[in-house]
């Protein structure tokens, strides 16, 4: 049995025929080709597959693709605007908060969601926002630095870069 769904990913409309047991992660990667969401634990533990679902971060590996019918999804591919990286992406590069990079798209999405919720996150809010994202390489210190820099960057700007999309 299969079903037809329509949804919006990174501003682009899609329609597809899917198996009802398909996860949103497999759907994004294998059916639509958005490989930015990473597959890792596949059980909701690590956060590598984090995407925005109607503006909220979720682990796409434990969400049914069928539930995304009518929804708006944002993956890491959707953050850059006109060739310019999102301030969160740029901050991760500037602080070298990246080693192997596998966990990073998930972190970037969690941080984007955090800075959409609040422009001035406390250290506790930062910790909470990425507590569902595991990084085996960096030791997190530089990631926290990157988040603080991105927050400052967005406070300085008009806020349009992040607001316009959410």
């Amino acid at each position: 049995m299969s079903l037809n769904i329509r949804l919006v990913v990174n501003g682009t409309r899609h329609r597809a025929k899917i198996e009802p047991s398909l996860s949103l992660l497999d759907f994004l990667r294998d059916t639509l080709g958005y490989k930015g969401a990473k597959i890792c634990c596949n059980t909701g533990e690590c956060g590598a597959c984090t995407v925005l679902f109607n503006g909220k971060p979720v682990n796409s590996c434990v969400v049914l693709a069928a539930d995304a019918a009518g929804a708006e999804i944002v993956t890491v591919e959707g953050l850059a605007e006109g060739g310019r990286l999102h301030p969160v992406q740029q901050a991760f590069i500037d602080t070298a908060a990246v080693q192997c990079g596998y966990c990073i798209p998930g972190f970037i999405i969690s941080v984007k969601a955090l800075l959409d919720r609040t422009k001035n996150p406390t250290p506790e809010e930062i910790e909470e926002a990425v507590s569902g994202n595991i990084c085996r390489c960096t030791g997190y210190t530089k990631i926290i630095d990157a988040i603080q820099i991105a927050a400052r960057q967005l406070q300085g700007s008009t806020g349009l870069t992040s607001k316009a999309r959410s």
């Binding site: 909701g44 984090t50 971060p57 994202n133």
Partner: peptide, 9 residues
């Protein structure tokens, strides 16, 4: 309860 991602779902 778990992570923010799980709490949202």
């Amino acid at each position: 309860f778990a992570s923010l991602q799980i709490r949202n779902t």
